[in-house]
Computed example of a mutant assay.
Amino acid sequence: MPHSERPSKRLAVVTGANAGLGFETARGLVYQNYRVVIAARSEHKGRAAVEALLKDCPEADVRFEALDLSRLASVRDFAAALRERETALDVLVNNAGIMALPQRELTEEGFERQLGVNYLGHFLLTSELLPLLTAAGAPRVVQLSSLAHRGGRIDFDDLQGEKGYDPWRAYRQSKLAMLLFSQALQQHSDAESWGLDSLAAHPGLARTALFEHGVRSRALVGALFRLTLPIMTQSAAEGARPILHAATASDFRPGDYFGPGGFAETRGAPERARMSATACDAALAERLWQVSCELTGAMWREETTT
């Protein structure tokens, strides 16, 4: 059972925090005096990230917990272990993701891998952690979206890319799904009195291994970005600023979406970002919510069942 007394420090979980934006987000939360769980698939990389953060800040309260978002059993196991160990969760940052896989790959449950890892795994994770979130004083959930969401569409007739797979179309769909999830989660929280604030963020064009791999997948795009990198992009630490703002800032409205405020939202200080008209479609968000519940088995219970 959870501890009877809650630690004084607030708790944050960051998925994919072993590198890139997730690591920088975890670092920022550590420096804001959060206890941080680095949730990642690779134990070696996750523990290395913990060591790096402790070297940076020896007083940090940070630990690694294994989470493979491509396996729903792993998502449930991670959440069950956290519910056993903790009494409340203040911040959940659904950051982990993959980009533009050249060939169609499947998760353990048969989901197209980008949709499964970037979105469906996080959808179930948030549902499984709802009891801890509702037990916190002012819980916040942050979904990581992307500028790419603006070109995305949710293809309910071919959600898993079985009829035709395109790496970037699948990525755009997954990041639009994350933004729709953010909106639907706020609506459900308001309707069910869960008391959580649902927000989203994007990093602009941040120089991470994920980003570099993605742009290399298309030669013309890669060549263009090599020419414009100094002007159009920013570091991973700078790219994490909108995510940290969504996770911790006081100047927000439920359902807000943050990104860099500079040229075309590619870089700069955090400001409210522009959502596509599709991302603002409440009916679409609710339809995706219901489909996602069916696919993942998410129950959205405030209390755990024995």
Rank of each mutant, 00 (worst) to 15 (best):
A191P: 01
G20H: 10
R267G: 08
R267Y: 07
S193A: 14
A135K: 12
D56L: 08
F23M: 00
M178F: 00
F181T: 01
A81M: 07
L288Q: 02
G268Q: 09
E59Y: 01
F258P: 10
Y257L: 04
L132E: 14
R216V: 00
R253N: 12
S198N: 03
R274Y: 10
S217V: 13
V221R: 12
R207S: 12
T233M: 14
A246S: 10
P2V: 01
F225N: 07
A49H: 06
D197S: 11
A79C: 08
A247C: 08
M99W: 15
W168H: 07
A49W: 04
N33S: 11
K163P: 00
F111E: 13
P242V: 07
G255R: 08
S42V: 02
G255A: 07
T305Q: 14
Q183A: 10
E271C: 12
F252P: 00
A40G: 04
L106Q: 14
E86N: 09
D56A: 09
L82A: 07
E238Y: 04
D61L: 03
P242A: 10
F111S: 14
D90L: 02
T233L: 10
T107I: 11
M178R: 01
P203A: 08
G22K: 06
R63Y: 02
R226S: 15
L54E: 05
Q114R: 02
R10Y: 03
W300D: 05
M299K: 12
L106S: 14
A81D: 10
Y165Q: 05
A79N: 06
T233K: 07
N33K: 06
G121W: 13
A170I: 00
M232G: 09
S189M: 03
L130T: 14
P167Y: 05
V36E: 11
A282C: 07
Q32A: 09
D251R: 13
M178N: 11
G20A: 04
F156D: 06
A49G: 08
R83K: 14
D61F: 01
G121K: 14
E238G: 08
Q160F: 12
G110I: 03
F78Q: 06
D157Y: 02
R267L: 13
L124G: 14
R35M: 05
D158S: 04
Q114P: 15
L244F: 09
A49K: 02
S193Y: 01
R272F: 04
S8M: 09
E303W: 11
R113F: 15
S182V: 00
M99K: 14
T208L: 11
T228L: 15
T306L: 13
G110W: 10
R6F: 02
P230D: 11
A138M: 10
E192S: 08
F263T: 00
E108A: 15
A66V: 05
E65S: 08
M275P: 05
P270L: 03
D155K: 05
T306M: 09
F252Q: 12
G22L: 04
V36L: 08
L129E: 15
S8W: 04
E105T: 07
H3Q: 09
L129R: 15
A240G: 10
S193D: 06
D251W: 03
L101G: 13
E302R: 15
K175G: 06
M299A: 15
Y171D: 00
L69K: 03
Q187K: 03
F263K: 04
Y31C: 04
A298W: 11
E86W: 11
E86H: 12
D251I: 00
T305L: 13
R27H: 06
L220D: 15
H245V: 08
L159A: 03
T134A: 15
P203F: 04
A184M: 01
